[in-house]
């Protein structure tokens, strides 16, 4: 009351305070609205508290503990002793552990490179039009994504069996010398496992790339064609750059999948014969739960997580660079 009376009186004298007067009610509602928004943000925190607490308890705290464990030598029972970087050094000094990283590189060829090439090839061969019946094909291509890896492992264990379909087919065409116990062979077990990964991921890559090409503007293709580009140049000039985002996604997912392979190996070969198909995840499992070297297992986990993170970040950065 008094303030309004004063402002009116002053306003009549200068004119400027009239503006303040007019702004005042607006400011106070703005303040009220802001304070209400601040209050809803606290309500928001209350809503988010439960999920955040579960997440912190199950993921964040153990993540920190993994790093802590990785600096100790511990058999899971007696008192842990400080080990410094010894567990990490094992990646260099222990030939078996070091070999797991080499195996991952082989698996990456099969899980990531081969499926992406196949996916790109089919995306390039397909005309970018609505194809009747595409839904059925998409259903088939995604099938390996919804099957549990245990069953996928069994499917291929049968395919690769000594008298399984693969060897039967080889013998039928007279290539008896090539028939072998694929998953029991020191040389062939790892590529055989890799091909299972190819089977799992190539359909996914295909669906990703096909939907990606349909989003590329047809004008770009028309322009390339009027420039006299053939199908090959058209692919490298238009399709490939247009699929950059999808390529980044496919690479990240498939490389991480290769790095993390556990179920497939555990069901089919247990890392054998010898250690020829041992992956970091299998080495981690053995170190954590079979003949406990808990610190080493934690270190393997930390290295795997760090690699996954670095791969994801690098691929995203590269794909976003112009």
């Amino acid at each position: 009351m008094s303030t309004s009376a004063r402002s009116t009186s002053v306003g009549s004298a200068t004119g400027a305070p009239v503006a303040t007067d007019g702004a005042r009610p607006a400011t106070s509602t703005a303040v009220r609205r802001r304070s209400r928004r601040r209050r809803t943000r606290w309500v928001g925190l209350a809503f988010a508290a439960l999920p955040l607490a579960v997440y912190a308890l199950v993921v964040l705290v153990p993540l920190g503990q993994s790093v802590q464990y990785s600096f100790y030598t511990w058999d899971g029972v007696s008192t842990p002793s400080w080990a410094g970087f010894d567990n990490y050094r094992s990646f260099v000094t222990d030939p078996v552990l070091r070999s797991t990283l080499g195996h991952v590189l082989v698996l990456i060829c099969f899980f990531a490179l081969l499926p992406i090439v196949l996916g790109l090839l089919s995306a390039a061969l397909l005309t970018r039009t609505k194809q009747p019946g595409m839904a059925v094909y998409r259903w088939i291509f995604f099938l390996p994504q919804v099957m549990t890896t245990v069953v996928i492992a069994l499917v291929f264990k049968r395919i690769y069996a000594p008298d399984g379909p693969l060897n039967t087919a080889l013998r039928a065409v007279g290539l008896d010398s090539l028939a072998r116990t694929w998953l029991g062979d020191f040389t062939w077990a790892l590529p055989a496992l890799g091909l299972i990964g190819t089977w799992v991921t190539f359909g996914f890559c295909m669906v990703l790339f096909i939907s990606g090409t349909s989003a590329i503007s047809p004008e770009l293709y028309d322009a390339a064609r009027t420039d006299g580009a053939g199908p090959v140049r058209e692919f490298f000039a238009v399709t490939l750059p247009g699929l950059r985002g999808q390529l980044a996604v496919a690479l990240t997912l498939t490389i991480t999948a290769a790095l993390r392979t556990f179920d497939l190996v555990w069901i089919t070969t247990h890392g054998g014969p010898g250690t020829s198909t041992l992956t970091p995840a299998v080495a981690l499992y053995k170190a954590a739960f079979q003949n406990p070297q808990v610190g080493l297992a934690a270190a393997i986990g930390v290295v795997m997580a760090a690699l996954c993170l670095v791969i994801a970040v690098v691929i995203t950065r590269v794909s976003e660079r112009d």
């Binding site: 943000r41 988010a48 993921v59 153990p62 503990q65 795997m304 997580a305």
Partner: peptide, 25 residues
């Protein structure tokens, strides 16, 4: 959410953390 500038990226980070990194502890 109060502090969502920090909290939300931490939540998203979780999608990249694999089970192997936390299973031992």
């Amino acid at each position: 959410v109060v502090g969502d500038k920090v909290l939300f990226p931490i939540v998203l980070l979780g999608m990249m953390i694999s089970l192997e990194a936390i299973i031992v502890p």
